[in-house]
């Protein structure tokens, strides 16, 4: 794909992003924001029952064209391939930038990878929920661990959870 064609493809995704409706039966929704540039996405993840595999993904958000286009492209891929959780977690930020297109993504890596980072957090949360439920943990205990996941994201370039929106807005003040 040459650069002009790629740009047109990205613009088309940015203007008419796919899979942008919240999934009513999602196992989890995780907001993620890029501190600094105002990009905000909430990943909705529905896991396949009894299988550590993606059943459906959507992203709802606002932000720059590349962040929203990347979410749309990633959601298309996820809803087509239904990868295992391990495959999502193994899918690297570098691969995500290749998927979007290096000639554009290299100039805005954080925007290009926000969707993937948020989705990975959602997958980790579902995976952990399942393990904890299997181990007999209560909902309250699981909620506490979710908060721990958000805390663990500190320093990864993303702000996950309830603080994401505020963080994404932060630098504009």
């Amino acid at each position: 794909m040459d650069r002009d064609t790629r740009i047109a493809w990205l613009v088309q995704h940015a203007q008419r992003p796919r899979h942008t409706t919240p999934l009513p039966d999602a196992d989890i929704s995780v907001p993620g924001g890029n501190p600094g540039c105002g990009d905000l996405l909430t990943a909705y993840l529905k896991a396949a029952p009894g299988d550590n595999r993606v059943a459906a993904v959507s992203f709802v958000g606002t932000g720059c064209g590349l962040s929203q286009a990347s979410a749309s492209i990633l959601a298309e891929r996820m809803n087509r391939d239904h990868p295992s959780f391990a495959q999502v977690l193994d899918f690297t930020y570098e691969q995500m930038m290749d998927l979007v297109g290096r000639d554009v993504a290299d100039a805005r890596p954080r925007c290009a990878t926000l969707a993937l980072g948020t989705l990975k957090a959602a997958v980790k949360a579902v995976e952990m929920n399942r393990k904890l439920k299997a181990a007999g943990k209560t909902e309250a205990e699981i909620a506490e661990l979710r908060r721990a996941i958000s805390a663990a994201a500190e320093g990864t370039g993303l702000v996950l959870g309830e603080e994401a929106a505020a963080a994404a807005r932060g630098i504009g003040v």
């Binding site: 930020y93 990878t113 320093g155 990864t156 370039g157 932060g170 504009g172």
Partner: peptide
Amino acid sequence: VRSPEEYRGERLHMPEYPNEG
């Protein structure tokens, strides 16, 4: 000229994006 949170050192980010961390 950064946000007050950055000024106060409350917001640190981006080991995965070392060019901006």
